[in-house]
Design a protein around this nucleic acid. Structure first.
Length: 673
DNA sequence: TGTCCTCGAGTTCC
DNA sequence: CTCGAGGACA
C-alpha cells in the first residue's frame, strides 16, 4: 500500500515532466539538444521511479508513456518481417549475474544442469539498421522504428561504404547492424557547421540518426558513416549454430564486423570483458555504451525464446552513465591549509561512472556565480578526469519559482574567532582573516605528515584528529615526543597500533632537507620550490638567514615566493618551531652524488598507472639521472611516460607530437645510460 | 606587456 | 586532474 504522495513529490513530478518534455522537444524537433542524452535519461529515471512508487500520479500525458522511435511521417514505412526486438538492460554486476541465473533456470527444464557460453560484443552507440538482401543484392535498408514498423532509408544506407550492395554469395538474408560515425568525423562535420553558423551535433548518435533520416542522400554521402554487422536472419543457407559462427559468416559475405567480440566461458568472464571495456571504451573511434551479451548456442537461444518485448537469451550490459542529474542539498565550506575557503556542494547521493558521489567542489565564489547554482537546484554531474566529481550545469527548468541566487557568506564558522573572511583584490579565493583557526591548523598537520613531507605512514587524518582532540599534539614537534602511554588511553589504540605508529614516527627522525622545508607549510613553497631552496642554501639555518636578492636569484623564485619565505621566517613562532623540530629530528645534508646525468635537460611527464613502478618511483628514477619531471605536458616536454588508463595528458601529448613511451621503454632508457 | 609554462593548492572515492 | 597565479622570456 502506498502512502499518498506528499506535496513536494507532486511538485517535483510536475517539474520533471515539464523539463523532460522541453528537452525532448529541443532534441527531437529542433535537433538542438542543450543537455546530454545521459542527463536526460537520468531525469527520466527519476520520473519513472516516482511514478512506480505512486502509481496514482501516472497520467497518460507523462513523458514516460511515450513510445520511443516512432517512424517519422516523411519516410515510407517498412514492415519488418523479422520482429526487431530491443534488449533488456543490465546496469550492474548483480544484474548480469541474475540474468545468468535466469538463463540457467530456464535451460534446466529441458537440458538439465548446463552452463551456457556467452558471446560478448561491443554495443556501439549509433543507429540500428536492418538490411534485406535477395539473391545477394541489397533490396532495402530500414531503421528499427518501433520494432514492427521502421522507415525505408535504403537510398541513404546505400551511401555507406561498409554496407555491401552486393554480397559475395548470391543468398537471401536479413542482416542487422549498427550505423555509426567516428569521433574524428563528428569533429570535422561540426567544424564545417560552425563555419556556416549552423547548430552543432552534441554527439555521434545524434549525427548518425540525423544523417540517416536526411531526405537528401547527397548530404548523407558527404558524411562518412560506417556500418558493423552483428546478426543475421532468414538466411537461405544454414545459419551457423554458434553466435561466433554467425559473425564469421557475416565476414565471409563481405560485411565489416567489429573485431572485439569474445567468447566467454561463463558469466564471470562476461564481467571481466565488461570491466575491461569500461576502461578502454574511449580509445576506439566510435562510441560504446555497453556490451551486448548473447547465449552463444543457437539451440539454447531458440529454447529460451522471447518475452513480450525482449529476447531471453541476450541482454545489453550497459556501462555506468558518465553524466547524471542530482540535487544540491546544501552548500558547505572547507578551510584549507592556507586558510582558503572552498565551497562544497552536498548532493543527494548518485551513482556516476561507477562510483557513488555525494559531494562535489564548487571551487570558489566565481564558479558559484558562473553556474548560478542554488541550494535545492537539480544539477548535471560528471567526473572530471575520471575521478573528481564536477558540476557541469544547473537544470534551470527544475528550479522553484521562489528560489533566489546563492549569496556567498561573509562569515565562516570554521575560521574560528568571529569567523570573518576576506577576498584579496584580484584573487579568486576567500580566506579566513584569522590565520590560526583550528581547521587550518589541522590541515597543516595533515600536510606535515603527508607522503611528500615527513611521510609518517601510520599517521593519517583520522589519527591526527584523534591526537588533536585529546590535546596530545598542538605543535608539529609534539609528534616526536609522543609516548606509548599517551596513545594507549585513546579509543581504538592498543599495543599493536601504538607500536606501529611510534615505529613509523621513529623512522622519520632522519629527513632530507627538501622534505623538511616542504613540511613547514610556507605559503607558495611546495615540493619543487623546496628542492630549489635546499640546493641553493644547503642547510635550514642558511635558509633562515637568506635575504631577498639571494632568493630572487633562484630560477623559479620571483618576488612573491621570495617575500613569502622571508615573511614566514620573520614570525617568531616559526623560528621557534624550527628550533624545536631540530631538537628531535636530524636533517640529512646529503652531498648530492653528482653521478652521470644523462637525462640532464630532458623533461618527462608521467600519466596513468604503470605496470610495476608507482608514478613517484618512476619520477625518482628519472630525477636520479638528472631528468626533470613536470606535471603538465607542453611543447617543452621530451617524453610522456604513459601507463594504463592515462588521462588528458596522453591526448595533449599526441596533439603536440610529443614522444609517448611505456614503462618498459623508460626502464630501457634508464638502463642504457 | 603579453604569452607560455610550471608550480601550488585543493579535491573525491575506495 | 583542474584551476589559478607566479615566473620566465621575448
Amino acid at each position: 500500500m502506498n502512502r499518498e504522495a506528499p506535496k513536494e513529490v507532486r511538485e517535483r513530478l510536475e517539474h520533471l515532466k515539464k523539463t523532460i518534455e522541453h528537452h525532448r522537444y529541443l532534441y527531437h524537433v529542433l535537433d538542438k539538444p542543450e543537455i546530454s542524452d545521459e542527463a536526460l535519461d537520468s531525469l527520466k529515471n527519476e520520473l519513472v521511479t516516482i511514478e512506480t512508487r505512486y502509481p496514482e500520479l501516472l497520467t497518460p500525458d507523462s513523458p514516460s508513456q511515450r513510445v520511443a522511435g516512432e517512424p517519422l511521417p516523411e519516410f515510407v514505412k517498412i514492415k519488418h518481417e523479422i520482429p526487431q526486438w530491443s534488449f533488456n538492460d543490465a546496469f550492474t554486476e548483480e544484474d548480469i549475474t541474475e540474468f545468468d541465473a535466469r538463463v540457467k533456470r530456464f535451460l534446466n527444464e529441458k537440458y538439465g544442469n548446463v552452463s551456457p557460453e556467452y558471446v560478448c560484443e561491443l554495443k556501439i552507440d549509433g543507429l540500428k539498421i536492418v538490411l534485406t538482401y535477395e539473391k545477394g543484392f541489397l533490396i532495402t535498408g530500414a531503421t528499427r522504428g518501433n520494432g514492427k514498423v521502421g522507415e525505408d532509408v535504403t537510398l541513404n544506407v546505400r551511401t555507406i561504404g561498409s554496407v555491401p550492395l552486393r554480397l559475395k554469395e548470391d543468398v537471401d538474408v536479413v542482416v542487422e547492424g549498427e550505423a555509426w560515425i567516428g569521433s574524428k568525423e563528428l569533429e570535422r562535420i561540426n567544424k564545417e557547421r560552425a563555419k556556416k553558423k549552423e547548430p552543432l551535433f552534441a554527439n555521434p548518435r545524434n549525427l548518425v540518426a540525423g544523417s540517416i533520416r536526411q531526405l537528401d542522400p547527397k548530404v548523407v554521402a558527404s558524411r562518412n558513416l560506417e556500418f558493423f554487422a552483428y546478426d543475421m536472419a532468414r538466411f537461405s543457407e544454414k545459419i551457423p549454430n554458434e553466435q561466433i559462427g554467425e559473425l564469421e559468416e557475416l565476414k565471409k559475405l563481405g560485411f565489416r564486423v567489429n573485431p572485439n567480440f569474445e567468447l566467454c566461458r561463463d558469466v564471470h568472464d562476461v564481467i571481466l570483458y565488461w570491466r575491461k571495456w569500461q576502461k578502454k571504451k574511449d580509445k576506439e573511434s566510435y562510441w560504446i555504451d555497453g556490451v551486448a551479451v548473447k547465449v552463444s548456442k543457437r539451440e539454447y537461444q531458440d529454447a529460451l525464446g522471447y518475452t513480450g518485448k525482449a529476447p531471453r537469451f541476450a541482454i545489453a550490459f550497459k556501462f555506468p552513465p558518465e553524466q547524471v542529474t542530482t540535487v544540491v542539498e546544501d552548500i558547505v565550506f572547507q578551510v584549507g591549509r592556507t586558510g582558503v575557503i572552498t565551497p562544497v556542494a552536498n548532493l543527494t547521493p548518485v551513482s556516476v561512472a561507477g562510483t557513488t558521489v555525494s559531494r562535489a567542489t564548487l571551487h570558489n565564489e566565481d564558479e558559484i556565480n558562473r553556474l548560478d547554482v542554488r541550494i535545492g537546484d537539480t544539477v548535471i554531474l560528471q567526473k572530471a578526469g575520471d575521478v573528481i566529481p564536477d558540476i557541469v550545469s544547473v537544470v534551470k527548468e527544475m528550479r522553484d519559482k521562489n528560489s533566489k541566487p546563492y549569496k556567498f557568506p561573509t562569515k565562516v564558522a570554521a575560521c574560528g574567532d568571529d569567523g570573518k573572511i576576506e577576498r584579496i583584490q584580484g584573487q579568486a579565493a576567500w580566506r579566513c582573516v584569522n590565520k590560526n583557526s583550528f581547521a587550518q591548523q589541522k590541515r597543516k598537520f595533515y600536510h606535515f605528515v603527508s607522503k611528500h613531507a615527513f611521510d609518517i605512514v601510520h599517521m593519517g587524518p583520522k589519527n591526527i584528529d584523534l591526537l588533536l582532540e585529546h590535546g596530545l599534539i598542538a605543535n608539529f614537534d609534539d609528534i616526536f615526543t609522543l609516548k606509548k602511554g599517551d596513545l594507549l588511553g585513546l579509543p581504538r589504540f592498543a599495543e599493536k597500533s601504538a607500536d606501529k605508529l611510534l615505529g613509523s614516527i621513529e623512522e622519520r627522525k632522519k629527513i632530507s632537507l627538501p622534505r623538511f622545508i616542504t613540511s613547514l607549510s610556507i605559503p607558495n613553497v611546495g615540493e619543487e620550490t623546496a628542492e630549489d631552496l635546499a640546493l641553493k642554501f644547503g642547510t635550514i639555518e642558511n635558509l633562515e638567514h637568506a635575504e631577498l636578492p639571494e632568493l630572487e636569484n633562484i630560477s623559479g623564485v620571483g618576488g612573491v615566493v621570495a617575500q613569502s619565505v622571508l615573511d614566514w621566517f620573520a614570525e617568531k613562532e616559526n623560528k621557534e618551531l624550527v628550533r624545536k623540530l631540530l631538537r628531535h629530528v636530524h636533517v640529512l645534508h646529503e652531498t648530492k652524488k653528482h653521478g652521470p646525468a644523462p637525462f640532464a635537460g630532458k623533461r618527462f611527464v608521467i600519466t596513468g598507472t604503470l605496470p610495476t613502478l608507482s608514478r613517484d618511483e618512476a619520477a625518482q628514477k628519472i630525477k636520479d639521472l638528472g631528468g626533470d619531471v613536470s606535471s603538465a605536458v607542453s611543447s617543452n616536454t621530451d617524453f610522456v611516460v604513459a601507463g594504463e588508463g592515462p588521462g588528458s595528458k596522453y591526448d595533449k601529448a599526441k596533439e603536440l607530437g610529443v614522444e609517448i613511451i611505456d614503462e618498459e621503454e623508460l626502464l630501457r632508457l634508464l638502463k642504457k645510460r
